[in-house]
């Protein structure tokens, strides 16, 4: 009786460890991996979308400035947006120096404004100069926010990602080692039914993995998420769907493992009965 209770407790621990190792593996291969995120950006044509969004925001602000929209020509390119977005991702995942060409955008815009003033022989008083400076700074902020989505929280997010990556390395090893140890313990406690317990643990873990998909389908409107910008939201939706799909695949693998362990367990029992 005591042996059975201990076995049940060990099954629970094994389920928790299997779920933890699955979650850690999925997260470290998806959202916590720069290459995965870069792939999502390419797949969803992110850079072109961000370029359009930033340009539209530029135009929204220019209409009230007394300047023609042509003032925006050439102050920003899609290639520049791509490079700055990649630099931003590199900063987030690897802590490299953050270089976004905001000053370049502002300088080019200021030069164009100066040309317009010169062409029109206009004299700019101090109030007007303040108004121009405010406009140029606003354009600069729009560009930076367009690239980073969350300028205010950038350094905090980078800190969190760095901490999680560090912690994950240690936790991953601990979880894998603990899983192997638990499996050994199962066979030490009850050699006869070791495979049966492994089968139950595998089926249970598979069931819990699929539960996430069920929760997503029944309660969350993931497809309609809209946060920061349309381009960012599309990438986020794709990332969430990739993670959930990974859990579904994990569920299938665990069920197959469960079947395999059931067969192995049955064969072992069959052999013993023969003996």
């Amino acid at each position: 009786m005591v042996k059975k209770i201990i076995s049940y407790i060990i099954i629970v621990i094994l389920i928790v460890l299997l779920l933890a190792s699955t979650t850690i593996t999925i997260l470290s291969q998806t959202i916590l991996k720069e290459k995965f995120v870069l792939g999502l950006l390419e797949k969803n044509d992110y850079y072109a979308q961000v370029y359009s969004q930033i340009l539209e925001a530029f135009k929204d602000n220019t209409i009230q400035s007394g300047l023609e929209e042509s003032i925006l020509d050439g102050i920003m390119t899609e290639e520049q947006v791509k490079n700055d977005a990649k630099s931003f991702l590199d900063y987030l995942y690897n802590g490299t120096e953050l270089t976004i060409d905001t000053e370049g955008v502002k300088t080019r815009l200021q030069e164009k404004i100066n040309e317009v003033i010169k062409e029109n022989n206009k004299r700019v008083n101090s109030d007007e100069q303040t108004a121009i400076d405010t406009y140029v700074n606003t354009i600069g902020n729009i560009y930076e926010n367009g690239i980073t989505c969350m300028k205010k929280y950038v350094s905090q997010v980078q800190n969190v990602i760095a901490k999680v990556q560090k912690m994950l390395q240690k936790v991953t090893i601990a979880v894998y080692v603990a899983t192997i140890v638990i499996i050994f313990i199962i066979f030490i406690i009850n050699k006869r039914e070791g495979f049966k317990y492994l089968a139950i643990s595998s089926f249970s873990t598979g069931g819990l993995c699929i539960a996430l998909k069920i929760v997503e389908v029944s309660t969350m409107r993931v497809q309609n998420i809209l946060i920061f910008s349309k381009a960012f939201s599309v990438v986020l939706i794709n990332a969430i769907e990739s993670i959930i799909l990974s859990f579904v695949i994990a569920a299938i693998l665990f069920c197959v493992l469960g079947l395999l362990f059931s067969i192995l367990g049955y064969q072992k029992t069959g052999k013993r009965e023969k003996e």
């Binding site: 009230q64 400035s65 300047l67 404004i113 007007e128």
Partner: peptide
């Protein structure tokens, strides 16, 4: 925004 013929962000 005022003045109507200003350049930049009118205050």
């Amino acid at each position: 925004c005022y003045p109507v013929n200003s350049i930049g962000h009118a205050t």
